[in-house]
Amino acid sequence: MKKTYNWAVLGCGKIARKFSNDLKLLSNARLYAAASRDLKKAEQFAEELGFENAYGSYEEMVSDPNVDVVYVATPHSHHYEHTMLCLNNKKAVLCEKAFAINKREAEEMIACAQKNNTFLMEAFWTMFQPSFRKAMEIIQSGELGKLKIVRSDFAFNAPYDLEKRLYNISLGGGSLLDIGIYPVFAALTSLGKPEKIKTFADFSPTGSEETVNMIFKYKDGEMASLTSSFAGFSPTQTEYLCEKGYLILNARWFVPTHITVWKAGGEMETFPSEHKEGTGYQYEAAHVMECLDAGKIESDKMTWQMSLDLIETLDRVRIDAGIFFPEHDKKMFF
């Protein structure tokens, strides 16, 4: 019989609401606690989603001995602080992406997990989507030949608003860490870390980058062309161009979607999504509990090294593009 885990949500925003709804699909997940710095907000969230308890401080929540695992869903500017709080109280952590603001923070988070022998994973839900895993299986099988080019985008129109997190530098605002992380992830999971990076960025009046175009070049000639933007809409798809054909993760490729495959000399083939219910957050949550069942403190799918490679690449993009977060980057050796 599976152990039932008491889940707590740290931060009661939009993504926490989606995650919590999907958590209900898992029989071994118990919606135990919701925490916000505003008790009323936590109570409303808990009542709406069905959590048993509400806390008006994160410190109070991590002090509850019944909390098994915490989903950190605050802005990424606060992921380091809140993850460290949980780990130092021996609470397993699933931390929303971007994992941290920079590599230094991520390294300290991982070191803290090791010191406290406590589970930690970046909540990169795409890694666990059936369609993404099917695409990786096809690419890695070699049936399309060697992968040569990755093209990936994520863009939507986000009207400029000083009050919005997306444009707030102190909260890590800008398209790169919010949505550009997805195209970068697409390149890393298929081609690895690039040898060279070239970027172009356009900035909003707050200093946050609105649009980023990235070119990754690899030692054997492979390339990736990646885009993130709040300025306009894109198909939001990822294309893997290979020597003997191509594969497309179709619109909204980072969530459960369908796959198109074409082999030279053949007909186009479509693989429908195997996803049946929910938004798709349940897959990563289920994996976390599998890891906890096995006594692991690190995932074997979304590894710490993958998170470090991802944040290191994002740091390289930021340095090349001139994207800085003064409140956090003073720790970095730029």
Rank of each mutant, 00 (worst) to 15 (best):
E163L: 13
Y80E: 06
Y55S: 00
E274W: 01
I248A: 08
T206Q: 06
M136L: 15
T257A: 03
M223W: 02
N21L: 09
R17W: 10
V67C: 03
V67S: 01
H287M: 08
E143K: 14
T257V: 09
F45Y: 10
G278H: 10
R151V: 15
A135I: 04
D22K: 00
A155H: 05
P235V: 03
D309A: 08
E48M: 12
P65S: 14
T189R: 08
L147T: 05
E47Q: 15
F156Y: 15
E267I: 10
D300G: 08
K296N: 11
E105L: 07
H79I: 11
I215N: 03
L39E: 11
T313A: 10
D329L: 10
T83D: 06
G142P: 07
N250R: 07
L31A: 04
Y55W: 09
L171A: 15
T303L: 12
L166K: 03
L147Q: 02
E108L: 12
Q282K: 04
S273V: 09
E209P: 08
L39C: 09
S234K: 13
F132K: 00
F233E: 05
S234E: 09
E137A: 07
T313Y: 03
I110F: 12
I297M: 07
L162Q: 13
Y218M: 08
G172H: 04
Y283M: 09
A231I: 02
A100F: 02
I197Q: 05
I139S: 00
S57D: 10
M214L: 15
C95S: 13
K41S: 12
D64P: 11
Q129W: 01
N88C: 01
N116G: 07
R165V: 15
S57H: 01
A186R: 01
S225Q: 07
H76Y: 08
A264I: 14
H287Y: 10
K97V: 06
R30F: 05
